[in-house]
């Protein structure tokens, strides 16, 4: 199977800036994008740098942008891509992280965020002599989040991180869920309190990009929503952020038929955090043209939406 790879190249040691190069590769029937890149590196241009090891979607090394979406190169099958996305396969380094060379990015920021959520079990009380007795269901619920191979695809595609580097981000928060929901952990309350702070779970705009990008079905956004529910259920949220977030969400949609992001942030964090801490973010969002409209317009059928809410008694 022939394929054309258009690869973003960047070598900090050369004068030439970032640019694209095209390569023709001949792959076996079920060849992956990774195999294509290795073929280029092995037989055409050994200077192409990328990270890879397991070839089977478990080590998390080979995440990169393939036709604009962050994916694992070893899991992206060339034949599937050619069938649905056309003949040229464009390969670029992950987003939201600085490029070191070609397809290799600096993931320091990624690991720092993971470290911030205190990613280790913190049991309290006397240790059992053998194992903790817990149900299989409780363990398997965590296994969903433990599927995370920390490849960075979700962080690469996160639209909040694009404008706000302080957000803990989808990978770290998915891992945070894994500890907060572990019946063996003794620090649940402190954990939830810290994830409830600005930069935590309420910063997610539910854009779904991380769910789409995750190659291991961790669905980080859903894990963030799980934490939000835990925050509300456990009455952690003394400042009422979650409650206000939910109420703000409902009010906005009820009023105009769609999400009022601007108003939502104001309602969630309240004055003065909203005004001072988030103002900086607002300015950066304006600069990136990512700011939600300040003047919130209603959709045409807003009245019908309102009726739905009224019928539901909300």
């Amino acid at each position: 199977m022939d394929a054309t790879f258009k690869v973003q190249r960047y070598d900090p040691e050369s004068q030439e800036g970032s640019h694209y190069e095209e390569f023709e590769v001949d792959l076996p029937e079920y060849g992956s994008v990774l195999e294509g890149l290795l073929d280029i590196r092995d037989h055409q241009d050994g200077s192409l740098s990328l990270r890879c090891s397991c070839r089977s979607a478990i080590c998390g090394s080979c995440s990169m942008k393939i036709n604009g979406e962050s994916r694992l190169a070893c899991k992206a099958m060339v034949s599937d891509i050619k069938e649905t996305e056309g003949d040229i396969i464009t390969v670029e380094p992950m987003g939201n992280m600085p490029v070191i060379k070609d397809l290799v990015v600096n993931m320091d920021m990624f690991w720092e965020k993971v470290e911030k959520i205190e990613p280790y079990l913190q049991p309290t009380g006397p240790e059992p002599e053998k194992e903790y007795l817990v149900s299989n269901d409780e363990m398997m619920k965590l296994a969903v989040a433990m599927n995370c191979i920390m490849c960075g695809a979700c962080v690469s595609d996160c639209t909040v991180l694009e404008v706000d580097k302080t957000f803990l981000g989808p990978a770290a928060l998915a891992k945070a869920f894994r500890f907060a929901a572990d019946p063996r952990d003794g620090a649940q309350e402190e954990r939830l309190e810290s994830y409830n702070e600005p930069t935590g779970v309420w910063d997610c705009t539910r854009c779904f990009m991380c769910v789409q990008a995750c190659p291991k079905d961790v669905a980080p956004m859903e894990r963030i929503m799980d934490i939000r529910s835990m925050v509300v259920e456990n009455e952690i949220d003394k400042k009422g952020r979650g409650q206000r977030h939910i109420q703000g969400f409902i009010d906005g949609v009820k009023h105009s038929g769609r999400l009022d992001e601007f108003g939502l942030a104001r309602k969630t964090f309240g004055f003065p955090i909203w005004a001072f801490e988030l103002a900086d973010l607002g300015i950066r969002r304006i600069l990136r043209l990512r700011l939600p409209p300040i003047i919130h317009k209603s959709i045409k059928s807003a009245k019908n939406v309102k009726k739905i809410f009224e019928n539901l008694g909300v």
Partner: peptide, 24 residues
């Protein structure tokens, strides 16, 4: 082996469990 496996469990490994909640 058993003591090492138990200590890994106490560090946080989410082993599959038996009906009684022990390591399967």
């Amino acid at each position: 082996a058993p003591d090492d496996i138990y200590s890994l469990e106490r560090m946080g490994v989410v082993f599959n469990r038996t009906e009684e909640g022990k390591i399967d």
